[in-house]
Write a protein that binds this DNA or RNA. Structure first.
Lengths: 194, 194
DNA sequence: TAGATATTCGAATATATTCTCCGAATTTCA
DNA sequence: TGAAATTCGGAGAATATATTCGAATATCTA
């Protein structure tokens, strides 16, 4: 029956996610996925049309998770400025656990998969949407002075991505929060009401 | 010149050890080893005759390290009973970092390499030797009552290996020491002078 | 229960990767 | 300068892997 089939697909995706996380796309074999799922290799092809197809499902699942958790994390905080901080920090931490989605975003050895381009765009869109919402609320509450919040959101997200790599590389976790403070001050220089 | 060549071999072995540790024998490619060593693929073949040959060098190096460190660790302790404890504990902890040697000892997907059999035998021999020495010193100092220390050493090492797996799997590090106490009591029941 | 449909898997095939070797180019050093 | 040491690109054979096929089995439906 159909429901059951989705369940098995999900199981396979979970199992595959772990293996992809450990070994990366190329070094992961269908045989491994099959064995770990306790199925025959060809049964996997009953549920997925290809290795790429499984990977796609894995990445999409991780993207969903990130999106959902991001929204939840932000809602836990009140002040829009703190929401921004939380957004940047939480995103960064969470991304470390979502290895497959993260490499899908970064790796160019994977960029020949057309689906990755779509995921990127979609995810960018989501981020901008979230930030825009935060900014607009901030403006309403007279925390921010921004003429064009849509434009500002794009700029902010872009800047954030630019800063992601140095932050990612930096191992000194304690200091990230401090630097984040500076980042926000910098990005919103003159825009935050004192 | 010859000295330089050995140096480069050593470098390659170090680099390869990391990759083998991360991905295992099969998933590691000569190309990766070459790239990580910043050499052309075929240059690697100038220094080693095959992938197996590199792996052999890696495993032998780790075996050397274990052997050396084990001896040092034991010498830091006085009482033979404590030496035994230290031997068992240290060996177990150290083995966790020497992944390639460890898998060489255990994995049967690798057992078609003839050199592995030799390494095993050699290492077993070394262990028995060390334990025998500890026992004999213990007897001299009248800590132990053992008729045949050679036989006892073999029995002890064998028992130790049997207990290795459950100890390895057990994550609760704190308790390992306690259980070790029991193990020694058990193995030497009636043999340790009170 | 029969017949249809869903699922499984072993074995075969097509494709891709990887090990290994060759030989020519470059470097080192006496 | 010339001989030996070292490097590496690229080719070919061997191996590994992804994917397909078809037959067997299980599950559902009426």
């Amino acid at each position: 029956m159909v429901v059951h089939k989705d369940q098995i697909r999900d199981d396979i995706v979970s199992v595959a996610a772990k293996i992809f996380t450990r070994f990366g796309y190329k070094k992961t074999t269908m045989e491994e996925i099959a064995m770990a799922s306790r199925k025959g290799k060809s049964s996997i092809y009953y549920y997925f049309s290809s290795k790429e197809d499984i990977f796609k499902a894995v990445v999409e699942k991780e993207a969903e998770e990130l999106k959902k958790d991001l929204k939840m994390a932000i809602d836990e905080v009140e002040n829009p400025i703190n929401q921004l901080k939380k957004f940047i920090l939480f995103r960064m931490h969470k991304l470390k656990t979502l290895t497959n989605f993260h490499t899908a975003l970064k790796s160019d050895s994977l960029s020949h998969f057309k689906f990755i381009e779509n995921i990127r765009k979609e995810y960018d869109q989501d981020e901008i949407e979230i930030v825009t919402r935060i900014l607009k609320i901030g403006i309403e509450r007279e925390k921010f002075v921004i003429d064009d919040p849509d434009l500002a959101a794009v700029a902010l997200v872009t800047a954030m991505k630019g800063l992601e790599i140095p932050l990612f590389i930096n191992k000194e976790h304690g200091r990230i929060e401090d630097r984040l403070e500076n980042l926000i001050q910098f990005l919103f220089f003159g825009l935050i009401k004192q």
